[in-house]
Design a protein around this nucleic acid. Structure first.
Length: 310
DNA sequence: GCATGTCAAGTTGTG
DNA sequence: CACAACTTGACATGC
């Protein structure tokens, strides 16, 4: 069956993740800085557990975790380690509590590094920071039991072949824990499913198929073909396929940017996906309300975990 | 309280 | 050239 996933935050559920800025941290001495970071990290760890409880209650089967659970962790000036934080053990324990809840209810967790993480960049300093950020996200993924870190190909720099060769080279520099979790996702301006498949197959990296991006940035493959090719990269690894879907706020016409709408238009949901064993992250501004509405409109069953009769 | 300006980071495309 | 878009507005400050 299909399981539906929520991305990062909630519209109505009273669950919030906290952040801070490097500038604010730099105005504090080391002791006050670490105390503040510790407080925020503990709040975020508790919020993650609350988020997973809400996800389960709402009948969803997946959750995308907001990357900065530990705010500014890899910042060159205010970066730190978990062991540096007062109460670091309690933070770790709370994250492991979330991991246990995830496992008990068979929820699938992912991370999605933001736009600054670019393994295809020709600039060494960009790649270096990207590798550090991915190692941080790998550490978080390990702690909370997240299966996947979903990354885009990055920039094309006028030569996508060369850029992807750089991506593959830097992929090899990551730790095994990150390599084993990394997935590639087609994006809306540069890399299509057709572009990414050779790298995915060569590296054993599964392909997250975003049908919204595919419609913005087509490659001659039909939705059915792209679905089958992407799904094969997951099944090769004995894993369940992972897809993304969203609707454009201002319709599909024209070349203007296509920000996400509040809710899914059910006609944007590929009929090719119905009946598959797969995970579908719903990217919509109305968050859990949008996931719930889409499931209702599709007649989808709530996720109860594999082998739990759901 | 509330309005407003700011926030680490990359790359691309539009107007 | 400025700005929006991207997984996401939240935080810090000043009134």
């Amino acid at each position: 069956m299909l399981r539906f996933g929520l991305c990062c935050i909630f519209r109505e559920e009273p669950i919030r993740f906290r952040a801070t800025t490097a500038k604010a941290l730099l105005s504090l001495d080391r002791r006050a800085r670490l105390a503040k970071l510790s407080r925020l990290a503990m709040e975020n760890a508790s919020s993650l557990l609350a988020a997973l409880e809400a996800v389960r209650r709402l009948g969803f089967g997946a959750f995308r975790v907001l990357s900065p659970l530990l705010p500014r962790y890899t910042h060159p000036e205010v970066g730190y380690r978990l062991e540096d934080l007062p109460g670091g053990d309690a933070i770790t324990a709370k994250l492991r509590e979330a991991a246990a809840f995830r496992a008990l209810h068979d929820l699938r967790l992912s991370f999605h590094p933001d736009q600054f993480v670019v393994l295809s960049s020709p600039r060494p300093e960009v790649v270096e920071r990207s590798l550090a950020e991915l190692e941080y996200q790998g550490l978080m993924a390990e702690l909370v039991g997240a299966e996947t870190i979903t990354l885009h190909g990055g920039g094309g720099y006028g030569d996508k072949g060369q850029a992807l060769a750089r991506w593959r080279k830097h992929f090899a520099e990551l730790s095994p824990g990150v390599r084993g979790r990394l997935a590639l996702e087609n994006d809306d301006v540069t890399y299509t499913v057709r572009d990414l498949l050779p790298a995915c197959e060569a590296l054993g990296v599964p392909l997250v198929y975003d049908v919204h991006h595919h419609r913005c940035n087509p490659d001659g493959l039909s939705v059915a073909e792209a679905t089958a090719l992407a799904a094969a990269t997951w099944r090769e690894a004995g894993r369940e396929p992972w897809f993304h879907v969203s609707s454009p706020r201002n319709g599909w016409g024209g070349n203007a940017p296509k920000p996400h709408a509040d809710y899914l238009d059910p006609s944007d949901f590929p009929t090719e996906w119905l009946g598959l064993d797969a995970t579908v992250d719903v990217e919509a501004k109305a968050k859990e309300l949008a996931v719930a509405r889409l499931m209702k409109e599709l007649g989808a069953e709530p996720w109860m975990g594999k082998g739990r009769g759901g």
